[in-house]
Each structure stands twice: as C-alpha cells, then as structure tokens.
Design a protein around this nucleic acid. Structure first.
Lengths: 145, 145
DNA sequence: TATTGTTATACTCTATAACTATA
DNA sequence: TATAGTTATAGAGTATAACAATA
C-alpha cells in the first residue's frame, strides 16, 4: 500500500496545518474559530447578502452547523440575518459594519503571513500550485463529462 | 483583501474535501472516522510499534484524542498497546492481525480512487504537486535557517 | 410536493489542565 | 524535575432526522 507520506489527503492536510498553524493564533486573539473565520471571509468577499445554502457550499460547513454559528455571530453583532427579498424561505446574511471592521483588522496580518509564505516560492510556482489544487477540486477543466 | 477563492487555506481545504468526499464512504462502511483511519494508516506504515507521541506527530491528532481513540480501536481488536521495552513511560502501539486485515481490505479501494485522480494529471504533475505541498509544509529545504 | 432553513440529538474531535507513573 | 500518557472537562463541529414555513 502507498506510503503514508505519499498519501494525497495527508500531504494536503500537512500543508494546510503548516499554513494554519501560523494563522490560528491571530484568529484566537479575536475569539474566532477557523470555521467562523471562513464564514466571515465568505461574507466579506461579496457585497450582496448570501443565503445559508450559498454559505454552506462556499465554506464546506453543514446547514445545522451554520445555523448555530450564524446565531452566535449575530449575538456578537458581526453578522445580520434578514429574509431574502424574492423568496421568504431564504435568508439574506451579511456582515454588519462591526463584522467588516473585524475582517479588516485581521486581514493585514493574514496578508503578512501569506507574503512570508509566498517568498519561499519562485515566481509562478504558487500559480502552478493553485492550478494543480483546483484541478484536484474540480476535474471538469481537464476531462469534461 | 485577498479573494476567498485565492486563499491558500481554502484552496487546500477544497482540494482535500474533493479527495476525501470520494473516500469517506469507504471508511464509513467500515465504521471508521477519517482520524481513526489516519491512525491505522500510520501504524500500517511501519512494522515496529510506535509511541503515542510519534503517532500524535504523524497524524496531527492531540494526545487526549489519541488516547481515547486508541482505547476504542483496542476494544475493536484493531490495535494493541504494550509498554515500551526501553522506557516504561512510553507505549508501544501496533496493529493487530485484524487491524492489518482491515487496512488491507480498504487499501485497494483507496488505491483505485487514487489512480482515478492520477489520470487527471499529466506525467510529473502530481510529483510537482507533492513537491510544492511539501515546500509549504516544511520551508527548510528552500530557505535553511 | 419540493425547497430553505432551524431545531433536536448523538457522537467525535479540539483544547487545556490536572494527574499518574516513570525517568 | 521533566517526560509520556491518561483522565477530566468544556466547547465546537459533524452528521442525520424531524420539523416549520414558504414556494
């Protein structure tokens, strides 16, 4: 059987752990878990409100987890939930001003960590890494079905 | 701030999820969590018994999590714990024959999934991916400190 | 009837501290 | 005193099912 060190899930996990190890302390200072940060990042990414389903897809969090997390983030005043204009079943989740401020406080430190990682790679290598990772995540560009 | 889609942790998570989504059902059939499988894989990798600390490092699991998991795997007859020959504080954890059989049952299906992923890449591309991932996980080969 | 989101429930893992046994 | 591992405890996420409201 393939060696543990040559397992793709393990290689991805190791790489992710190495990156997150530098970043988690920053989140912890602000009382945020990795998953909560994913939600805030996904919300900060777009100016329009997003449904719970959209957030679920983008953050790889399940609906029930998200429901509870959004309630907690709402209690902290970081996000706001409203009913979607076109479909009353849907939620319209967005960052509050305070939530956006928090993201903007954390973002520069995140960028600094990122640049220190970037320096370890030759020009173009990181692009190549992104290209290979997205090929893993979505086979379609290579082998359309 | 960097787009969510261009976040390295997210790209790694997406890639890992895509790979694990194909593999988790196989584990579930055998009543194994992803983390338990990591432990079994780490044990299957070497013929000599490993200490809890070694397993912790290799699987990215915390000591307390491992202690409980090893107790559960021991109850299922998949692993055995003994006292280390040289140092009575240390444990000597190894797969039982049944544990090895289980790994050998699952391994071929895991390999099949792996080969179907491999087919999506040109020769050498996957080597390049491993190289870039290991650079992320360990900067030393590039920039010795 | 199907879909969106929430609530309920049980389980697993994370994380830290306290403890035991051994070195 | 320090180290290896376990136990205790609290909290967060995973996963599935059941449910309410809306389409």
């Amino acid at each position: 059987m393939r060696e543990f060190g040559r397992s793709l899930p393990m290689a991805l996990l190791r790489a992710r752990e190495a990156v997150m190890r530098r970043f988690r302390p920053i989140l912890a200072e602000h009382g945020l878990t990795e998953q909560q940060w994913r939600v805030l990042r996904a919300l900060a990414d777009s100016d329009v409100a997003q449904s719970v389903g959209e957030l679920s897809t983008r953050t790889f969090l399940l609906g029930p987890s998200l429901s509870r997390m959004l309630a907690a983030l709402e209690r902290r005043g970081l996000v706001a939930r409203a009913v979607h204009a076109d479909d009353a079943r849907r939620a319209a989740v967005r960052l509050t001003a305070g939530g956006r401020r928090l993201v903007e406080t954390i973002a520069p430190r995140s960028e600094a960590e990122y640049r220190s990682i970037e320096r370890r790679f030759a020009p173009g290598e990181l692009d190549e890494l992104y290209r290979l990772l997205s090929r893993l995540a979505d086979p379609r560009p290579v082998d359309p079905v």
